[in-house]
Structures are given as C-alpha cells and as structure tokens.
Simulated scan of single mutants.
Amino acid sequence: MSTKRSPIQTGLAWTLAAEMRAVFRKLKLRYREHGSGNDLTASQISVVLRLEKDGSATVSGLARVEGMRPQSMSAIVAPLQESGLVLGVPDPSDGRQTLMSLTPKCLKWLQDGRSARQDWLATTISQKLSVQEQEKLRAAFELLKRLTED
C-alpha cells in the first residue's frame, strides 16, 4: 500500500499549516494581551516558567538548561529578585550555592494572569460562536490533538 500523497492533498495540507500558524500566532498575541500586565522580557518569562515547572534551581543550573552563560542568567534573574518574583536562599546541601525559587507574589501573578486569559477566551468563544460552532471547534480540537500525539 502506497503512502504517497497526491499534489492536491499536499497543497491542502500546506495551506492548512500556513493558516493554522497565522491563526495560532494571532490568538497567542490576543491571549497575552488579556493576562495580567507585565514588563518581563521573554527570557525572564522563560525563567519564571522553568522555575514553576522544575522547582528551585541555581543560577548556573538555570543557565545550563536555558543554554546560556551563568553571567547572562544572573542578569536575567536579578530584576526578577528586585521585583519580588524570585527569591534566592542558600542551598541546604551546599551553602556556597543559592537556590532560586518563585515567591508567593509570583505564583499569584501567574495564577491571576492565567485566570484572566481563560476568562477572556471563554467569554470570546461564548460571544462569537454559536453552540453549534462551539461543537465544531471541539471536534477540530480532537483533530489538533491527533497532530500532537507521538
């Protein structure tokens, strides 16, 4: 059995991929607009999300997983500490190291931002799409999930 695709199928897939990329980019931008406002850089957001996901880490450990020099990571972490989003405490297993972790203020900021974005998206869906269209969107997401399965 041949798995070769016809040019029509390939062209349609190419068009769908381009349209999906454009729509998802625009949705991502709109989604960000409706979170709690922030002045964080992309690198700072990456560090905050990394600490949230993986837990406490040293600056050198963060630098390693983010693929940068420890000095560069220090420059990213310092404003996060100054703004009260990240706290450094001595590593109990090695007092020479400092473990960076998220503060309760940061965790609340993350939660509030996610809640605001979720509220905006749910409201937008309910206002702009009929119940039938919402069901179609649900079906489309089943197909999108299949695209991301390994």
Rank of each mutant, 00 (worst) to 15 (best):
L29T: 15
I76R: 04
P92W: 12
D112M: 07
V23T: 06
A75W: 12
Q97I: 10
A78N: 08
G88E: 04
M73L: 10
S72F: 12
L62D: 00
D91K: 00
K53I: 02
G113K: 00
D54E: 13
A63H: 04
S36F: 01
D54L: 08
G67P: 00
P104Q: 10
A57V: 00
G84P: 05
L110R: 09
N38C: 06
M100F: 03
I45T: 13
R50C: 05
P104M: 13
E52C: 07
L102H: 06
Q97D: 12
G67V: 11
L110I: 13
S83F: 15
V86F: 05
E19P: 00
L85K: 02
Q44V: 07
G55C: 03
V23G: 05
L85G: 00
R69Y: 11
M100L: 14
E82Y: 08
L62I: 11
Q111I: 01
A78I: 07
E82I: 10
K26I: 09
K53P: 06
K53N: 11
S74D: 07
E19G: 04
M100E: 02
S43I: 11
Q81H: 08
E33A: 09
V77H: 04
L99V: 10
S101V: 01
S46E: 10
S83Q: 13
Q111S: 13
Y31L: 08
